[in-house]
Design a protein around this nucleic acid. Structure first.
Length: 604
DNA sequence: GTTAGGG
DNA sequence: CCCTAAC
């Protein structure tokens, strides 16, 4: 299903990485503005309604997996839905925001960085991302532009998108580029730098500040992303951007490299995929409602309420055009987003489904994403290759350059639990691993089959082994695993920015935690994390430490004073025992807890 | 980057 | 869950 959304509806509502607008003080993920942005919500609501309807109508059959027929259509205001043969996509908005002019000599990595920079800074309302000019730039058509000139190249007829605010110059006639038009393109030149960036409502480029001066900022972690965002939010001067120096760029590259290297070891990619498959299988087995959502993530700057639907089966989300110079110009019209798997009980309300889907989207988009580059349907893995080497060059005839937004944590399966007031109607949404992304054309499928089947099979049981980690238990469709977590609709969005969503530990998780602490001790939370929560990306070792803290406290107080989901007394007893034990036997320099002096609390 | 502890 | 001092 492709939901075609136009204008500031979609992304605006989701606070997806988007073209900054001039309502600058608005905080991303703040409660959505109640105007057209709510359209996105309505869109999802409609989708939810349709899905539920489908689910109910097919209730006679056992299979409750909703299949949306290609012919399906529904409308909601200006929102339109279309379907594609292969994929159901949520096209969240039109894309008018990505404008790139890059030298073919630039690293793919640096280009990705720029994209990430763009999309990672949700709070940056007006951004211009600078790239060092190279010798080629002087020969580019940009030199004809004055400092304040901006190019906005659009093809309203072709795209059916009217974006007056973008069109400063007659795109067709004055385009310095050969070949076809570059929809949604906008450039400016300032000094020796080519400015790539967004245009705000005031038609001004505002330089972005605080472009992550530390490599740490590139850590593909939602936590980090949040911190960055938060810091930006609290910074009053973030709009005043220092010019990036060359050495800083190199630092970025370095940071990216080392961090990605770390990530590879820390987060096991294959395992995540296996879990993905597991989730897919499990959800399928349970006859859950599965929504496969690709997505076009983009936004129109136009205020025009009317949009023309673009072709749905667009296989490429980016257009590349050659120019006479060595620059490759392309506009990213859409981003695919990871699939969303939504599992809801039939008793769930539409409202809860709305929130759930929203949470899922927010999780992906707001939680920190990075950009993947696809060329000819294949993922470009070598970030150090130049665009030229990658085949992204003005000489190449690229018809399938694509970008994908990928979860920052390949292992992360943030399960968003939402619920209706009734406790038993939990809803879980899992973020699909990016490796399973499929594009609209169905030709950009990347699945790691490695060891997938075996793992999926071995984990298909309803009862999961302890070693599978607490995360898996969350996938378990038990009441406790799907403990309802009310999502505050009014403040939920701001909460997402301000702090992580509260995710009460399930009994399963507590059990895993207790078990781990019994064995490992209380001073090595990182090990505890790795031991039982490695796959639960939403549980940091700090979380585990905190949870243990509260567990100890809970165990000490009377049952009457306890709140929240009751923890079995047996577990609390073990908590106290373990706590007492490790209070004596400092976990720190503990290597010999197998000694016979004191039997460790190892159980099972 | 982790740990520990207060907020 | 956040923050951060301390390591």
């Amino acid at each position: 299903m492709v939901l075609k959304k136009n204008r500031n509806n979609g992304l605006g509502g989701f606070q997806v990485p988007r073209c900054p607008r001039s309502a600058r003080t608005r905080v991303p993920f703040k409660k959505p503005v109640e105007d057209d942005r709510s359209c996105a919500f309505e869109l999802l609501a409609s989708l939810a309604g349709e899905l539920l309807k489908e689910s109910e109508s097919s209730a006679s059959s056992n299979a409750s997996e909703v299949k949306l027929l290609p012919e399906e259509r529904f409308r909601n205001g200006s929102c339109e839905e279309k379907s594609s043969e292969n994929e159901k996509h949520l096209e969240i908005a039109e894309a008018d925001c990505i404008i790139e002019c890059i030298s073919a000599n630039n690293d793919v990595k640096s280009e990705i960085f720029k994209l990430e920079n763009k999309f990672g800074n949700h709070s940056d309302t007006n951004r211009v991302i600078e790239v060092p000019n190279d010798s080629e730039a002087g020969r580019s058509g940009f030199e004809r532009l004055s400092v304040d000139d901006k190019f906005s190249l659009k093809d309203p007829l072709k795209l059916g998108v009217n974006s007056p605010s973008l069109v400063n110059l007659n795109s067709t006639a004055k385009s310095p580029f050969c070949g076809e038009l570059f929809p949604n393109a906008s450039f400016s030149r300032h000094g020796n730098d080519i400015k790539l960036g967004f245009i705000d409502d005031d038609e001004k480029f505002i330089r972005c500040n605080k472009v992550c001066t530390k490599s740490k900022a590139f850590r593909p972690s939602r936590c980090i992303a949040r911190k960055i965002i938060r810091k930006r939010l609290t910074s009053k001067h973030w709009k005043v951007a220092p010019k990036l120096k060359d050495y800083e760029h190199s630092r970025y590259d370095k940071g990216i490299k080392s961090l990605s290297r770390k990530r590879k070891t820390y987060y096991n990619f294959e395992r995540s995929q296996c879990h993905t498959l597991l989730k897919r299988k499990k959800l399928s087995d349970k006859g859950s409602m599965v929504t496969r959502g690709g997505g076009f993530i983009s936004e129109s700057v136009s205020d025009s309420p009317k949009k023309v639907i673009r072709g749905i089966n667009r296989s490429s989300s980016a257009k590349v055009r050659a120019s006479k110079d060595s620059h490759v110009k392309f506009s990213i019209e859409s981003f695919r987003i990871p699939e969303l798997y939504v599992e809801v009980p039939e008793t769930a309300t539409v409202a809860s489904l709305k929130r759930t889907v929203m949470e899922a989207v927010m999780n992906i988009i707001g939680g920190g994403v990075h950009v993947g580059v696809l060329v000819q349907g294949k993922k470009v893995r070598d970030d150090n290759r130049t665009l030229q080497q990658t085949g992204i060059s003005c000489k190449e005839n690229i018809d399938k350059l694509g970008f994908v937004l990928e979860p920052s944590s390949s292992l992360a399966f943030p399960v968003v639990c939402a619920g209706t007031p009734s406790i038993d109607s939990g809803i879980s949404v899992a973020k699909q691993d990016s490796s399973l992304l499929t594009n609209t054309g169905g030709d950009l499928v990347e699945i790691n089959h490695e060891s997938a089947s075996s793992l999926a099979d071995s984990l298909s049981d309803d009862k999961l082994t302890k070693d599978s980690g607490a995360l898996v238990s969350v996938l378990d469709n038990s009441v406790e695993a799907l403990a309802a977590v009310p999502v505050n609709q009014s403040t939920g969005h701001s909460e997402l920015v301000q702090r992580r969503a509260r995710r009460p530990f399930t009994v399963s998780e507590v059990e895993a935690l207790v078990h781990a602490v019994e064995e490992i001790g209380t001073g090595r939370w990182r090990d505890v994390k790795l031991r039982c929560f490695e796959n639960a990306d939403h549980r940091t070792y700090v979380d585990l430490k905190d949870k243990w803290k509260t567990l100890v406290h809970t165990a000490k107080i009377s049952p009457q004073q306890r709140r929240g989901q009751p923890v079995p007394q047996e577990l609390l007893d073990r908590v106290l025992a373990a706590h007492a034990y490790w209070s004596i036997h400092q976990a720190k320099h503990h290597v010999k807890h197998q000694t016979n002096s004191v039997q460790p609390l190892v159980i099972m």
